[in-house]
């Protein structure tokens, strides 16, 4: 294939953009990772930041994991993220799909009512009282049910469903498929990219959830990782109590890496589905 001059210029632009993004995101992130492996004194000596560590130590990680608190928190977080994301996706799909069918009487009204909740939020205390009234306080459900559907994600998914060609539904109906059948066999396979995206959004929200845990969880054994992590990071300021010893910068960075690594490792596996989703899109054409 002969490539035109234009085409080459285009490629150059594309690579230029990608390279730029790679550098500006990678360098600061590298700092965080490198700092977590650098001995504290070395870090200070080199002005507080290290791009490529010359001396490597695992001290920060050892110290961080020594009391087992973080691992316990990690286990809770994993449970909440897995169960929560599955339920989030089911609930969001079940709600977004009917609402995307604009011919359905009432779909506009319900959408409006739902968007209203995004614009008007009730505040911490009233929400707390309802969560308590529903009897989920101090269980992992308190971290799942009150955020079952996010309006933003719902609208994005609904917009995606609306973009699917109308003929598909017509054809399926003529074939005698039920609505559930259409959703399961026709819509879902075509929606893998959006499912993965929205699933990722939900998973990350669960992974980073902090305030819900602070409010709804008092049982120390149910405390998710972020709460434990935040306590480590929070005392990063100077001492307010004479007893406090500020965790060294290296320890804080180790905690950040520890908390972020699992989700970063999982992402490339999800990315595969983006490609598969494209294939599904091509098949239908």
């Amino acid at each position: 294939m002969v490539r035109s001059k234009n085409d080459r210029a285009f490629d150059a632009l594309v690579y230029g953009i990608l390279l730029f993004v790679l550098l500006i995101t990678l360098i600061p992130v590298m700092f965080v990772v490198s700092m977590s492996f650098t001995p504290y004194e070395e870090l200070i000596k080199r002005g507080g930041f290290v791009l490529i560590p010359t001396k490597v130590t695992m001290t920060a990680y050892k110290e961080m994991l020594s009391d087992g608190l973080l691992l316990g928190g990690l286990w809770i977080t994993v449970q909440v993220t897995v169960i929560g994301t599955i339920l989030n996706l089911i609930a969001t799909t079940l709600t977004a799909y009917p609402l995307s069918r604009r011919q359905m009487p009432g779909s506009k009204l319900v959408t409006k009512l739902i968007i209203f909740t995004m614009l008007f939020s009730a505040g911490t205390i009233p929400t707390f009282l309802i969560v308590k009234a529903t009897g989920v306080m101090n269980t992992i459900w308190a971290m799942i049910l009150p955020s079952l559907i996010t309006v933003y994600n719902l609208i994005v998914m609904k917009a995606f469903f609306e973009g699917l060609p109308e003929e598909l539904f017509e054809a399926a109906r003529i074939d005698g498929a039920t609505e559930f059948g259409v959703l399961l066999r026709i819509v879902m396979p075509m929606s893998l990219p959006i499912m993965m995206t929205i699933g990722m959004y939900y998973a990350v929200t669960h992974w980073n959830a902090y305030m819900v845990a602070v409010l709804y969880i008092t049982d120390a054994e149910l405390r998710p990782m972020q709460v434990i992590l935040r306590r480590m990071l929070k005392s990063a300021n100077m001492d307010y109590n004479a007893e406090d010893v500020v965790p060294a910068e290296t320890l804080r960075m180790a905690a950040v890496c520890f908390a972020t690594a699992p989700i970063v490792i999982i992402y490339p596996f999800i990315q595969k589905y983006f490609v598969k989703g494209t294939l599904a899109g091509a098949v239908k054409g």
Partner: peptide, 19 residues
């Protein structure tokens, strides 16, 4: 003795929730 994160909000919520 229980330490509460975000003390003000968390304490008020607990009092109102009749914990």
């Amino acid at each position: 003795v229980i330490y509460l994160d975000e003390y003000d909000v968390a304490l008020n919520a607990r009092i109102m929730g009749e914990e």
